[in-house]
Simulated assay, not measured.
Amino acid sequence: MRKKLTSVWAHNFEQELASVDRCLCRFPIVSFDTEFPGFLRNTPRRASEGLRYQDLAFNVDSLKLIQLGITLFDDRGNVGGTWEFNFRGFDEETDPHVPESIALLKASGLDLEKFGKFGIDSDIFVEGFVEILRVHRGRLVWVSFHGLYDSAYVMKLVTRKTIPSSPIEFAKVAGRLFERVYDLKFMARYCPGLFGGEIGLERMATILGVQRCGDAHQAGSDSLLTAELFLKMRSEFGLKPGMYEGFLYSLSPKICGASKYLCSSVHTVHRAPPHSVILVPAFPTRPVILIRHPFSRDQSCQSRHHAAPVMLYRHPPPVFLHRRPCSPFPALPQALPENHIHM
């Protein structure tokens, strides 16, 4: 298992982005993490989803991304590499930030003066990164820990737009951008011994016996730890491919990739084999057991869980497949000059 963490700056950006492109052909699962200048609005713990989303949009739209870390791996536990992209553009003197958050990043080893001098221009990053998404479209699986903010910052970076106006619109854009997502904090709700998901990254690593490589609060190290925890959770708790796919912690609409409509309404299970049991998380309570009856392909699934409203989803395709070498996918265009892209 490769443990190398590669720090990417303006001078080696093209070389390392080409390495990421090649690596994705063999390692299509992407764990990612971001570092940013804190939270201008701290959302109350028991706030409604509407308020949480308003605070998310305000924070992400007001602040600049400092660092993006990605780790590429496969379903057999092989890690292709970790890259830490360091962005220029954040100025501690003039840009909004939370002083305590900046102090924490500095204490964790981030040299913000170096970022300003040698960091990657975000426009140059987007041009190359969007091309990679286009080439590998339909193949990638994205994994995060408490990934709503991470996803929002990547969405803002790639689309060059403000955050969508509602959770449903956010899920639609996320479905076109990421297609297939997993959030370890959401998954932890259904795993015994992980405190119902009310747990941080470091505490989860301690409980599951996963050792960090690198320093905490740096995006590359955090993305690598997220990848290893995802693999450990799969083996430790017997999670099947497709379980808990499409959900981000604190976001109720399901993220459905390559779909013409959002999967937040009632859908039937599509082409499920007779009597197959499919575990689907019904946010925000617990999984729902759905059974496809064999007598009619067109009839809906029936649920054994009637205590709460049931959301039925399309039968999820397998996540972990042995894929042939990648080929171009023309569906996602390159970044357009008018500062936005059509996903």
Rank of each mutant, 00 (worst) to 15 (best):
Y190D: 15
T162Q: 14
S264L: 07
T159K: 13
R212A: 00
P274Q: 12
I207T: 04
V181P: 02
V269H: 04
P274H: 11
S165V: 13
M204N: 04
G193M: 07
P273L: 14
K240E: 15
K240N: 11
V173P: 06
V269W: 01
H275V: 12
F247S: 10
R286H: 14
R286I: 04
C213R: 14
Y190T: 13
K240S: 14
R234T: 07
E169F: 12
A272H: 06
H146T: 01
L148E: 02
G200K: 09
V280A: 06
K260G: 15
E236M: 12
P281A: 10
C213P: 08
L157T: 04
V181C: 04
P284M: 07
S144W: 01
F230D: 04
S264W: 12
Q218F: 04
R212V: 00
V269Q: 13
L148R: 06
T226P: 01
Y153N: 00
V266Y: 14
Y182S: 08
F195H: 11
V280Q: 13
E236R: 15
S165K: 14
D215M: 07
R234K: 15
E169V: 05
A282V: 09
L239S: 08
F178S: 07
D150Y: 04
P284N: 14
S223F: 05
L251K: 07
F170K: 03
K240H: 12
L177H: 02
P284I: 08
E179D: 11
A258L: 14
K172S: 08
D150K: 02
A282R: 14
P241N: 12
A219F: 01
R189P: 00
G246Y: 02
A152I: 02
S144F: 00
G209Q: 06
M187H: 05
V143G: 02
F145M: 07
E179C: 09
F186D: 04
L224I: 08
Y261G: 12
M187W: 01
K240W: 10
K254Y: 07
V277F: 12
V280H: 06
V154N: 02
P192S: 11
C256I: 07
A216Q: 10
V280G: 01
E228C: 09
P253H: 11
C213N: 13
F170T: 03
R234D: 06
G242A: 11
R203K: 15
S221G: 10
D183N: 08
T226W: 03
L177M: 13
R234A: 08
C191M: 09
L251C: 08
Q211V: 00
R286D: 15
G246V: 08
R212Y: 10
D183K: 06
S259M: 10
R212S: 01
V280D: 10
D222T: 02
G193F: 03
A219S: 08
H146C: 06
E169S: 14
R271M: 11
S259P: 09
P167A: 07
I168C: 04
P164R: 11
G196E: 11
M233G: 05
L251R: 05
P281F: 03
K240I: 12
L148P: 01
S165P: 10
G200H: 03
H267K: 13
R176W: 09
D150S: 06
A205Q: 06
L184H: 04
L194E: 03
M204K: 05
K161R: 15
V154E: 02
S151Q: 06
